[in-house]
Simulated assay, not measured.
Amino acid sequence: MKQDYRVLLLPGWENSGPDHWQSRWEARHGFRRVEQDDWIWPRRGDWMARLEEVLLEAPQPAVLVAHSLGCLLVAAWAAHTRHPQRVAGALLVAPPDVERADMPPNLYSWRPITRTPLPFPALVVYSEDDPFCDERAARTIVSDWEAQSMSLGEAGHVNGASGLGDWPDGISLLRGLVATLEGPAHKEEDAR
């Protein structure tokens, strides 16, 4: 993977534990986790401000790799930032449907889901048996964000409990996304 992009990991509610693929990617590939002040009672505005802060720390654009609530963070940030060019693309895994009645009160501040089209290329990966978002809701979110999508079949919440280990297929998806960012249009710019 070219080093022109920083890869930032955006965990969801309660952070990603040691068995989560995000934690494994951080250890194995040196990607940076965006730490939040409060993982238990997350506030959308606070998380957005922290993401903005990290994105503005370095001049090169980032590729965001988000899981669960981290996906909703990407959408909310993108709809409000004045610096969308800081993100080249995003891999969004298992977005939750926080508008469901059975969501815990910790996540009420994330309602309504930001549904503005994303201003950068994004691939949303979802599971058909995700306990936090049914397939129809996932497809609606993908459509609203005007993102590409891919179903993993039945993979739960695509987290540590899903038994993905290092999730090499996910790394392949990330590499594919980065390759599209480095496509012909970008090569023409480099040649100038």
Results as ranks from 00 to 15, higher is better:
Asp102Ala: 09
Asp102Thr: 11
Met103Thr: 13
Met103Lys: 11
Pro104Ala: 15
Pro104Lys: 14
Pro105Trp: 12
Pro105Ala: 11
Pro105Cys: 12
Asn106Gln: 15
Leu107Thr: 13
Tyr108Ser: 14
Tyr108Ala: 11
Tyr108Met: 12
Ser109Pro: 15
Ser109Gly: 15
Trp110His: 13
Trp110Ile: 14
Arg111Met: 12
Arg111Val: 11
Pro112Ala: 15
Pro112Phe: 11
Ile113Phe: 08
Ile113Leu: 13
Ile113Lys: 09
Thr114Val: 12
Arg115His: 09
Arg115Lys: 14
Thr116Gly: 00
Thr116Phe: 04
Pro117Thr: 01
Pro117Asp: 01
Leu118Gly: 03
Leu118Ile: 07
Leu118Asn: 00
Pro119Phe: 06
Phe120Asn: 01
Pro121Thr: 01
Pro121Tyr: 03
Pro121Asn: 02
Ala122Ser: 12
Val124Gln: 02
Val124Trp: 02
Val125Asp: 00
Val125Ala: 08
Val125Glu: 05
Val125Trp: 05
Ser127Asn: 03
Glu128Thr: 07
Asp129Leu: 06
Asp129His: 08
Asp130Tyr: 02
Asp130Phe: 03
Asp130Met: 04
Asp130Lys: 07
Pro131Ala: 14
Pro131Tyr: 12
Phe132Trp: 14
Cys133Glu: 09
Cys133Ala: 15
Asp134Gln: 09
Asp134Thr: 06
Arg136Pro: 02
Arg136Ile: 12
Arg136Val: 15
Arg136Asn: 11
Ala137Met: 08
Ala137His: 07
Ala137Gln: 09
Ala137Gly: 11
Arg139Val: 03
Arg139Thr: 07
Thr140Ala: 14
Trp145Ala: 02
Trp145Ile: 04
Trp145Met: 01
Glu146Gln: 13
Glu146Ala: 11
Glu146Asp: 14
Ala147Glu: 00
Ala147Cys: 05
Ala147Phe: 00
Ala147Trp: 01
Gln148Phe: 01
Gln148Pro: 05
Ser149Cys: 10
Met150Gly: 08
Met150Tyr: 10
Met150His: 11
Ser151Phe: 01
Leu152Pro: 00
Leu152His: 00
Gly153Asn: 12
Glu154Tyr: 08
Glu154Pro: 04
Glu154Phe: 07
Glu154Ile: 00
Ala155Pro: 05
Ala155Lys: 06
His157Val: 02
Val158Glu: 00
Val158Ala: 04
Val158Asp: 05
Val158Thr: 03
Val158Pro: 02
Val158Trp: 02
Asn159Arg: 04
Asn159Ile: 08
Ser162Phe: 07
Ser162Leu: 01
